[in-house]
């Protein structure tokens, strides 16, 4: 059940460089906050906008690099990978998905190869198919989410953790109009 949170957590354990794609400039800050919340809480966090600023942070600092010039940043990273090898805590580079920086990354094969395991695209890693989830629920619970919730409303469910988890999943799959 790996998703982007887990992928970011795993990538943060593997310095020196992590690349996270984000969908919209308005979401950059929340993407940075999310990465910081997933990181080891003992790591100091610094937000920077250039490679030089990122390298000026101590090696045990989580540097969140949101480049002003994404293409120049990719070129600089591609040409200066040796400068990062001492880092105990990664530099996380945020690139706009589908933007110039991501395109530049695909044209820097050695850098791409270097960061490939640490390249996180949340939109690609967090798909949710409600039809597949419904089928999975029926396989797991032996009834539909609506039938499960009817049992809950009649007080027929036990208080086990299994019932609790299934109730949350049924409420997720239930349409808003179904709430009685």
């Amino acid at each position: 059940m790996r998703d982007s949170v887990n992928a970011i957590w795993s990538a943060l354990q593997q310095p020196p460089l992590v690349v996270v794609l984000y969908d919209d400039y308005g979401l950059l800050e929340s993407a940075q906050e999310e990465v910081a919340s997933i990181a080891n809480p003992s790591w100091p966090v610094r937000r920077v906008s250039t490679v030089e600023d990122a390298l000026s942070t101590s090696a045990d600092t989580l540097a969140l690099l949101a480049p002003v010039d994404e293409v120049a940043t990719i070129e600089e990273l591609d040409g200066g990978r040796d400068r990062f090898v001492e880092r105990a805590v990664p530099v996380v580079v945020f690139l706009l998905r589908g933007g110039a920086g991501e395109r530049a990354l695909t044209q820097a094969p050695s850098l791409l190869s270097w960061v490939r395991g640490n390249l996180i695209d949340p939109s690609a890693q967090d798909p949710f198919d409600p039809d597949a989830a419904r089928e999975e629920f029926i396989r797991h619970a032996g009834r539909t989410p609506e039938e499960w919730l009817m049992m809950r409303r009649r007080g027929e469910l036990d208080g086990s953790p299994e019932s609790l988890g299934l109730t949350y999943r049924a409420l997720l799959l239930e349409g808003p109009d179904d709430l009685a």
Partner: peptide, 18 residues
Amino acid sequence: YQGRLSDKTKDKRSRRTQ
């Protein structure tokens, strides 16, 4: 578990997140 606490189960049809 820090990396497994997730809000990425989003059902766009019901507009709910688990």
